[in-house]
Structures are given as C-alpha cells and as structure tokens.
Simulated scan of single mutants.
Amino acid sequence: MNFILMRDHSEQLEFMEIDLSEEAETASIRIPDRSSLVNQSRQPHRPQGAILSSEKRFVEEASRLEEVTGEETASVPFMSYWPTYGVMNDAQLKWYLYWRTEVRQGIYLDVDLSYLFVHVYELINGIGWLQPEDGYHQLKRLWLNYRERLPQFHVYMQEWVVDYVLVHDLHAFLRDVMMLSDGYLPSPLMDKELQQVLQENVAEVTLDMLKWYYDYDVTLNTFYRDGGKEWMERYVPKVMAVMDSYLKRTQQRGLLPELEPKAEQTVKRTLFQKAVYDESIYGRIVTFTHFPLILEREFVERLTRIYRCTENKIREMRGFRGRLRGKTLEPELAGVIERYLDRALAMEQAETVTAPVIQIDTAKLASLQEDSEYVRKALTIEENEASCIS
C-alpha cells in the first residue's frame, strides 16, 4: 500500500545535534541512558493541554507511518544517539522508508545503525505486526542479517529480544534466543531453562547451556580449542542423560537438586532499557520467579566433575595427551560414563566402516523373473482346475 508522506515539522521534537567526524564508524555508536541526554526541544501546544513524551510521540508517528512504503532512493547517512523520525531530515526519512520496504520483502541492504534501531523500536512498541510471533521473527531476521555487519547491534538485541519474549509470553523461543546469543541468557532465565530441561527431557540439554554452571571456563583448554569442542557438544548431553537416568534408578533423584520453595527468588526486569519504548504499552517491568541453580554448590560441583570425566575419557579414546585435573567423580559414576562412551564410540566407528558393494547380475535377475512368472501361471491354472472339479 502506498501513501503520500506528509510530515508535520511543527510537531517534531528537536534534539541536540551531535557532530560526528567522517572517520567515526557506525558500529561505534552508543545509546546513552536518557538521563544523559540534553533535551533542548520546545513542547508543541496541544488543544487539550497534554504534552506527549518523546516515546509516545515516536509511537504516534510510527503508527502513521506503519504501512507507508518507500520508492528506491539514494542512501543517506544517519547517526544519532537517540534515533527517531524527529531527528531525520526528509532525505533520511525517504531512505529509511525505502530500506524498511526492502527489509519487509527479505532484502537486507547495508544500513547505518541508527536506522536499524528505529525499525527495532517500531517492532518492540507493537508497530509492524499483528501477532507477537510475527514480530519476534522480524526481530530475529534483523538480528541474523546485521549482527556481523554491525557487532554492537548484536549486544543490544541479546537483551531486547529477551524482553520481547517475556512481554509476549513467548517462552518457547527462549532457547532459540540463547542459540542466537552464542549460548547467553540472563542468568535467572538460564536457571529456568535448565530446570525445565532437567525436569522434562535431559537429552535436550546443550553444552552452551551447561557451561555457565561449571566452576571453570571449559572453552579455554587446549583439547576444546583444537577440535574437542565438536566431540563435547555431541557427547556431553548424552552423558548427562545417562547420568540422570542412572541416578534416578540408584538414588531416586536425578541431576536436578531438590528445590526448596523458600529458595525461589523473584526477579523484576526493566524492559527495553536504552530503547525508545513507551512503557504505557506493555509496562515498565516484567516479573518472574526462578531457583538460583548457580548457587547450589553440590549441583555445580557434580556437573563440573561429570564434564571433566567425560572430556578425559574422550581425550583418552582420541589419543590426546594430557588430562584435566581437579576433584574426580565418584568411581561408580565414572565407571558408568566410561562404559557408556566405550560403547557409543565403538558403535560410531562401526557405522563408519564401508559396507560391502553388492553387484547384481542382471542376466540372472531376468532369468529369476521368468521363472517366477512361470510359477505364477502354473498356480493360477491349478486353482482354476480345482474350482471346476468342485
């Protein structure tokens, strides 16, 4: 749908102009807290005497521009510490609408970070989608397509997309967000995710999820860096599932510790910090509870020892010199892990053995087909004769 764009400059907030040198890179732009901004605007007179905040004014104009499309136009630089439509000139707004039109069609042109933020602000304020799931997927595609080109964008999206998921109760996407964030979630949410996985299906646990609970950084050792990472990602979840099953059979409790209700903590998370966000839409904070698993010392030690035992066994089987040191796992549990890995790796090696090549003699196959046809006809004749006699 095409609209004629008419801008009412008299109702735009004017922001302090910031002189950025030509050498400044877009990726170095930072969005400061609102308290650090100097607002030199004059508020427009409204008949009812009401004064809109900058966030509400942004949402109001975003609603007017929601379905406006843009024709192809020349790219115009845009750098602002608090990017909104109100600090764009006409050429910048035309470029933004053209770029956004292309993005909505799956074309992700190179763009300055400030333009990108404006589009994200639209989405988190409920502009540009009908169902929350659609808004999430739009944010995800922006994140995937620009996080390498604009690394700072990746940092902000790690938090804003989490907020979006919480606001709209899209908890099923949290694991997806964790993978997009290279294994990161805010620690209270990581606790909730790990608790859910250990309660419902331990085999779905991932190394990225577990590594935050080990008492040392497993990514720094030589084996992990020199190819061991793939082995650990493949086998650690399986070993955890085996351990959980074994502990339930022998100790009536799996990997997850007994959680006392009094240990549960309530978290109040401020939404969309450093974004242009109208808190009257979805509120200023979101509240949820979690059990702080990271504080369960025995739980953390057991996970760490299981990991250490697993890596040492794989090191041995792969012929890698050296072993991880530290407190060892109970001999009974270590034996379960070692026996499992012996079988698992033996099966994997057996599957990689090349199967014998089967050659078919086509002449013999044709002969067998003729014999089969002869037998079929003979049986048919016998059946017909038996029918006539009866």
Score class of each variant (00 low, 15 high):
Q199V: 00
Q199K: 06
Q199S: 09
Q199W: 03
E200S: 14
E200M: 11
E200N: 09
N201E: 13
E204V: 08
E204D: 15
V205Y: 06
V205N: 10
V205S: 15
T206E: 14
T206N: 10
L207R: 04
D208I: 03
D208Q: 09
D208T: 03
D208H: 09
M209A: 12
L210D: 02
L210E: 04
L210P: 00
K211C: 08
K211V: 02
W212N: 01
W212A: 03
W212K: 04
W212P: 00
W212H: 10
Y213I: 00
Y213K: 05
Y213D: 05
Y214I: 00
Y214Q: 00
Y214F: 15
Y214S: 03
D215T: 06
V218K: 06
T219C: 05
L220C: 10
L220I: 12
L220T: 15
L220F: 14
T222D: 15
T222N: 12
F223A: 08
Y224Q: 01
Y224H: 04
Y224A: 01
Y224G: 04
R225A: 15
D226C: 06
D226P: 03
D226H: 09
D226G: 01
G227D: 13
G228T: 10
G228R: 03
G228Y: 05
K229S: 15
E230F: 12
E230N: 12
W231K: 08
M232D: 04
E233A: 12
E233C: 13
E233N: 13
E233Y: 09
R234E: 15
R234H: 15
Y235K: 00
V236N: 01
P237S: 05
P237W: 00
K238V: 10
K238M: 12
K238N: 06
V239A: 10
A241F: 09
A241S: 14
A241W: 08
A241L: 10
M243F: 04
M243E: 09
D244C: 08
D244A: 05
S245Y: 02
S245Q: 08
Y246H: 14
Y246T: 07
K248F: 02
K248W: 04
R249W: 11
T250Q: 14
T250V: 10
Q251A: 10
Q252K: 11
Q252N: 09
Q252F: 06
R253V: 09
R253D: 04
G254W: 06
L255K: 06
L255C: 06
L255A: 03
L255S: 03
L255Q: 05
L256M: 03
L256F: 01
P257D: 00
E258R: 13
E258S: 08
E258P: 02
E258W: 14
E258T: 07
E258M: 14
